[in-house]
């Protein structure tokens, strides 16, 4: 009896979950199908649930804009931040975990304190700094602050602590210098952390609309996110073209995600458990 009732309860819950899941998929579905609807169809009521006469006109109109450049800019910024963050964080995290250097406690405390701060606090000054080093309105204006953000250091430090000190001592006795020790011994051990940090940084840079909005101006230097936002400003309710842009921005990452979901999941989990 009890078991049966429990099963029924579980079945109902699963059903509810499936319905909610469909609601979660819907916006994505609406982007993809909307990209193939001409404007007249996009705003018609009742709506067309599936584009019966799919058209590429929206993409033709989209690519009158430098949409490909926007997309590549996003890729470049995300990849560059990812690589730089991984490298600088791993180096810093390693010594913070394993070296008793003078001032270590202070450095670490400042990093922890800065982690909690919202990036936007530094907004106006950052604009001036970027200008003074000639990087305003370039991809670097988005990349460099992302690299400065110390979350990665914290993550890497937590991981590097699991590296056994004995191995490091052994390496030193064998005459390996610090850099070789870091490359040959520490790096392989903390490899999973690299994966986690890489995924985390890539996605957060890709989605960092705020910083991109403030730092980038030239139409050709926009990211795909900014480009789509600009299209929305210019075309208002011309939803077909806007969805075509949104699809271009979303599809590649979604595809990568679906292919490597397992790594995403373990990356996210690792980032959290150690963070």
């Amino acid at each position: 009896m009890l078991k049966q009732r429990l099963n029924l309860y579980r079945a109902i819950m699963m059903l509810v979950l499936i319905i909610i899941s469909l609601l979660f998929i819907f916006p994505f579905y609406w982007i993809i199908t909307g990209a193939f609807k001409i404007q007249k169809v996009a705003i018609q009521m009742p709506p067309q649930w599936f584009p019966t006469e799919p058209t590429f006109a929206n993409f033709t109109e989209l690519f009158l804009n430098p949409a490909l450049a926007w997309f590549l800019n996003s890729v470049f910024m995300s990849l560059a931040s990812m690589l730089l963050v991984c490298l600088t964080s791993a180096m810093a995290g390693y010594v913070l975990a394993k070296k008793q250097f003078s001032g270590r406690a202070i450095v670490f405390a400042v990093i922890i304190a800065a982690m909690a701060l919202p990036k936007q606090v530094v907004l106006v000054p950052l604009v001036r700094i970027m200008n003074s080093i000639g990087m305003y309105n370039t991809a670097w204006a988005v990349i460099l602050p992302a690299v400065g953000w110390p979350f990665g250091v914290f993550l890497m430090k937590q991981f590097a602590q699991t590296v056994p000190t004995e191995i490091l001592d052994a390496a030193r006795i064998d005459g390996s210098n610090e850099w070789m020790t870091f490359v040959r011994i520490v790096t392989p051990i903390i490899k999973p952390a690299y994966g986690a940090l890489a995924i985390f940084t890539f996605i957060s840079t890709w989605n960092d609309y705020f910083l991109q909005l403030v730092m980038l101006q030239s139409r050709s230097k926009l990211t795909i996110a900014l480009g789509v936002a600009t299209l929305q400003a210019e075309m208002a309710t011309n939803y077909g073209v806007i969805m075509a842009g949104a699809a271009l921005g979303a599809l590649p990452i979604v595809t990568i995600f679906l292919l490597f979901q397992k790594y995403f999941a373990s990356g996210i989990t690792m980032g959290a458990v150690k963070g």
Binding site: F24, P27, F28, I31, I203, W206, N207, Y209, I224, A225, L226, V228, A229, G245, A246, A247, G249, A250, I253, V254, I256, F257
Partner: peptide
């Protein structure tokens, strides 16, 4: 929704 990106 996370991988779709905020703006889309």
């Amino acid at each position: 929704p996370v991988v779709t990106g905020t703006v889309p």
